[in-house]
């Protein structure tokens, strides 16, 4: 795929958001939309500039991103490891899968009161919630991916003399990768969602905290700005995951013309 078609394809996706922004600005300037309900995009841009200059925005984005990634790393790697273990070993699956499926049915955000009691509003609380939220999509999809590897290919690998290691790295893991990526992208969504909720309820820094502070002082432009930044960060994470997907699943028919 050439660079220009890549640009055109992605450019089309940005057309709608830009049009919405333009319409919104026009509506605000015409007075259709009162500024205390929804400030004009230009006002949000001003807020953006103001907070960037003061360094507050960058600091809060940094804090939130660090929390998100740390929670993702912890929850994601435990989920991946357990998914692999339970996909490869029936003993491990027999031991843990039922328990995990039970825990999975508890909405992790329902634990917030408990988590605040345990950890207060410190970093551990956010880390714990994000890790828990990210764990399940990664675990479920890794397990599913391994279980859906074509047994005929596994038999072929055995017949051709692959040992367990070769079988894992050349047949099972590549076969499970498409499902693992589905889990990854889903987990990234949950990661931001959990963090926003956790920061909005209990935090002393971060984007969610910034938005809550702004609400106290009726700075609607800053509230809207935080929401927009969340949207951008979510999109950025998803784009990174898609890039990784494209790089590692080049063999997949779905990615050959895309």
């Amino acid at each position: 795929m050439s660079f220009s078609t890549h640009l055109r394809r992605n450019g089309i996706g940005w057309l709608l958001p830009v049009l919405v922004l333009a319409g919104w600005e026009v509506a605000s300037r015409a007075g259709v939309m009162p500024a205390n309900v929804l400030p004009a995009p230009s006002a949000v841009a001003e807020a953006f500039w103001r907070l960037t200059l003061s360094g507050e925005l960058i600091r809060n984005i940094g804090v939130s991103t660090a929390r998100a990634l740390a929670g993702f790393a912890v929850g994601g790697s435990i989920g991946f490891a357990l998914g692999l273990a339970n996909g490869l070993s029936t003993l491990s699956r027999g031991l843990t899968d039922t328990t995990l499926q039970m825990i999975r049915n508890i909405p992790h955000l329902a634990l917030i009161p408990l988590v605040i009691l345990w950890f207060g509003i410190d970093e551990e609380a956010k880390l714990f919630l994000v890790a828990l939220g990210v764990f399940f999509p990664i675990y479920v999809n890794t397990l599913l991916g391994i279980q859906s590897v074509d047994p005929q290919l596994v038999e072929m690998g055995r017949v051709y003399g692959m040992d367990r290691r070769a079988l894992f790295f050349r047949v099972i893991l590549p076969g499970a990768l498409p499902a693992i990526f589905v889990g990854l992208r889903y987990a990234l969504g949950i990661m931001w969602l959990t963090l926003i909720v956790a920061e909005t309820i209990s935090a002393s820094s971060g984007l969610g905290y910034m938005a809550m502070q702004a609400r106290e002082f009726l700075l609607i432009d800053v509230v809207v700005l935080s929401i927009l930044i969340y949207a951008l960060l979510g999109k950025l994470a998803d784009s990174l995951a898609r890039l990784l997907e494209r790089l590692s699943l080049g063999w997949h028919p779905a990615f050959q013309n895309g």
Binding site: Q152, L153, V159, G175, W251
Partner: peptide, 14 residues
């Protein structure tokens, strides 16, 4: 001994 299956059984990712 080598075995040739009814299906090609090629690794799609290789």
């Amino acid at each position: 001994t080598r075995f040739m299956f009814q299906e090609p059984r090629l690794l799609p990712w290789a």
